[in-house]
Amino acid sequence: MKRASLVLTLAVAATLPAGTVFAQTLKTVKDRGTLSCGVTHGLPGFSAPDDKGNWTGLDVDLCRAIAAVVLNDPTKIKFVPLSAKDRFTALQSGEIDVLSRNTTWTLSRDTQLGLNFGAVNYYDGQGFMVRKSLNIDSALKLDSASACVQTGTTNEQNLADYFKANKMKYEVIAFATADETLKAYEAGRCDTFTSDVSQVYAERLKLAKPEDHIVLPEVISKEPLATVVRHGDDQWLDIIKWTHYAMVNAEELGVTQKNVDEMMKSDKPEVKRLLGTDGNLGEQLGLTKDWAVRIVKTVGNYGESFDRNVGAGSKLNIARGLNRLWNQGGIQYAPPIR
């Protein structure tokens, strides 16, 4: 199935009229009336359908915010679930407008794939989950272990680097999807399940007895998870980046989903510029003056979205850590809106 779709996209890429560049994504999306957004097959906290079939999550919130500013309707989105392996091809071929699927920003992906990375909406790192019964408290004690990992991710290389650097032996078994990886781990094929820490926490909840498994303290890599768009459409890239930055700036300025109407009356210059009561910054982006108001009304500010999906207000209960605002000890830092 998956392979068929990959070959199909390749065939499409090969037969498109020469010189087709995906320059005007904004216009395309407006004409079509829906935003096509690439997400996971279901990763709780980032992008997963709930029991009523609505997609929720931190990455999904970003898609909804983009739809809100571009189409003025956060429901006009077509979510396209993609495996780690197929995600870039889907974006390259124009099947999706934006990839919001916990994707690590690396140099080779930025340069070799004809893609551009937007803003980092989650700073992550790779970690390990093991059975409590193994009685180990550190990844450095994983010598000779078998590791289950999902193929098509940055995790395979990180794993090799980490074990080599620490002169430890290991065996890696790479699966096509996250579900198969987890099943093999649960069946006892591997001593450890490894992925980005946020994902490890999310997958742990899918196990029959999550309390029998622990996440080791080591974080062995840098995984800045960002949105991705096609290379060569600067306006669209700007919109994607600034949608996230508006959410971060809103948190910094104390604008929330609840008080946004009230804040419209604020006379603080920064708030006025963000919410468009002063100046035409939204129009400079090719959007409307009230673009940031639409974002905050739809998904709240960054902090609210984080808490609701992955933080204290969610089942995952992941600490904010690196994702705190820069003035609260984290590294989420948005350029000023002015």
Binding site: A84, K85, S108, T151, F175
Partner: peptide, 20 residues
């Protein structure tokens, strides 16, 4: 599907996603 490192898994899989 089960992580056996055949041609499709290691070459058309991991190699493809690492090199694009």
């Amino acid at each position: 599907a089960i992580g056996y490192p055949d041609l499709v898994s290691v070459f058309a899989g991991t190699t493809l996603s690492q090199t694009g």
